Amino acid sequence: MASFGAASSGGDRTAEFSGNFVPEVEQLKFSTTCSFSSNSMAQISRSVATLRIAGDDLDPEEITALLGHAPTRAYRKGDLVAAGSGTRIAPFGHWQLCAKDAEPENLDSQVAELLSGLTQDVQVWRLIARRYSVDLFCGLFMQESNEGVGISPGTLLSLAQLGIKLDLDIYAADADC
């Protein structure tokens, strides 16, 4: 087992590190010599966020019952689904829930919107994550060449506790070449 060292006011302490270890805040020592403003970068112009669950044998009705919320879109493997101007046969089952687009970007509120209507039972989320691919797809759309995004520790912790992978897709502003 690897070690994770953490200093505290009571001297150096070393805690065992496992995949689920979360260090206690009082164990960590942070430097306070550097400060920054939360408004130090231009904000991403627009964001979209979609919770996606996918798998070969995914039954959308089962996911809806487990999470306690109807999806924005769902289908089973083999269903005919709309694709552009036509249709295609779904190669896997899919359940998705979309948040309202945010302009300017606000991933924290979009994640809160998505998760607030769903079960917070970690055991249910673990069951789903063991059986299916689960992610939060975020599309970030820039208007300028240098825009940024910040995601709060609370949002990141919520996603981690529920086993939801964060997937960021960043679309650059049109460049004048």
Rank of each mutant, 00 (worst) to 15 (best):
125 W>S: 01
29 K>N: 08
62 E>W: 05
95 W>L: 03
117 G>T: 12
33 T>A: 09
134 V>S: 00
168 L>S: 08
101 D>V: 11
56 D>I: 08
82 A>N: 05
77 K>V: 05
29 K>R: 14
28 L>D: 01
90 A>E: 01
7 A>V: 12
33 T>E: 11
116 S>P: 02
4 F>H: 11
21 F>T: 15
74 A>K: 04
65 A>V: 11
169 D>H: 10
75 Y>N: 10
39 N>F: 11
177 C>D: 15
33 T>V: 12
39 N>A: 09
101 D>H: 10
96 Q>I: 02
64 T>Y: 03
118 L>H: 01
62 E>V: 11
118 L>T: 02
1 M>L: 12
34 C>Y: 09
7 A>I: 14
146 N>G: 08
55 G>T: 04
83 A>P: 01
66 L>Q: 08
35 S>M: 03
102 A>G: 04
13 R>L: 15
67 L>Y: 09
144 E>L: 09
113 E>H: 07
21 F>H: 13
129 A>C: 13
80 L>R: 14
92 F>P: 00
153 P>N: 03
73 R>W: 02
64 T>G: 09
32 T>C: 04
140 L>F: 02
144 E>W: 04
18 S>M: 09
62 E>D: 14
25 V>E: 08
101 D>C: 06
157 L>Q: 09
160 A>S: 08
103 E>R: 12
60 P>V: 08
152 S>A: 09
131 R>A: 12
133 S>N: 08
85 S>E: 15
2 A>P: 06
17 F>Y: 15
112 A>N: 06
144 E>R: 13
84 G>T: 04
134 V>C: 00
37 S>D: 13
114 L>F: 04
174 D>E: 15
11 G>M: 10
123 Q>S: 15
35 S>C: 04
81 V>C: 05
40 S>V: 09
165 K>V: 09
97 L>Y: 13
84 G>V: 05
12 D>L: 15
150 G>A: 08
98 C>F: 04
27 Q>K: 12
43 Q>D: 07
57 D>N: 15
61 E>N: 15
140 L>H: 00
30 F>D: 02
5 G>I: 10
64 T>W: 02
132 Y>P: 03
170 I>K: 07
56 D>M: 05
131 R>M: 08
148 G>E: 08
168 L>C: 11
5 G>N: 14
68 G>K: 11
148 G>Y: 06
55 G>P: 00
92 F>D: 03
127 L>V: 04
17 F>A: 14
91 P>S: 13
142 M>S: 07
38 S>H: 02
120 Q>S: 07
83 A>V: 13
149 V>E: 07
152 S>H: 06
49 A>F: 01
157 L>W: 01
76 R>C: 03
152 S>V: 01
177 C>M: 10
162 L>V: 01
79 D>V: 06
55 G>A: 03
10 G>I: 08
88 R>W: 02
100 K>D: 13
14 T>R: 15
160 A>C: 04
109 S>V: 11
41 M>W: 07
171 Y>S: 12
88 R>A: 09
65 A>T: 13
94 H>Y: 14
169 D>E: 15
49 A>V: 06
